[in-house]
Simulated scan of single mutants.
Amino acid sequence: MDREWQRRHDQFHTVGYRDGLMAGKEASVQEGFNVGFTDSVYVGYNWGLVRGITR
């Protein structure tokens, strides 16, 4: 019985760790994307204005 409990404990501990790791990665990736997207839109808009004016 102890061996079965230990096996289940290890299994769910590993699954919980993986789930937490994936959730953390997704949250940080989304945050990084949002910041990068905002910055690139601003730079792209300004670059478009400069190109439009110079043409």
Rank of each mutant, 00 (worst) to 15 (best):
M1A: 12
M1Y: 09
D2Q: 10
D2M: 11
W5K: 15
R7W: 09
R8Y: 09
R8M: 14
R8H: 06
H9E: 12
H9Q: 10
F12W: 14
H13R: 10
H13A: 13
V15K: 08
V15I: 14
G16P: 00
G16W: 03
G16Y: 04
Y17R: 12
D19Y: 13
D19R: 14
D19N: 11
D19C: 11
G20P: 02
L21S: 08
L21N: 07
M22L: 14
A23K: 11
A23M: 12
G24W: 02
G24H: 05
K25I: 03
E26M: 10
A27F: 11
S28E: 10
V29H: 00
E31A: 13
E31T: 00
E31H: 04
G32R: 15
N34Y: 04
N34R: 11
V35D: 00
V35A: 09
G36H: 06
G36C: 07
F37Q: 07
T38K: 09
T38E: 12
D39M: 14
D39Q: 13
D39K: 14
S40F: 06
S40G: 04
S40H: 02
V41P: 00
V41Q: 06
V41N: 03
V41I: 14
V41G: 00
Y42A: 15
Y42R: 15
Y42K: 15
Y45L: 11
Y45A: 08
Y45P: 01
Y45N: 05
Y45Q: 07
N46T: 15
G48W: 01
G48Y: 01
G48D: 01
G48S: 08
G48Q: 04
G52E: 05
T54V: 15
T54Y: 02
T54D: 03
R55H: 02
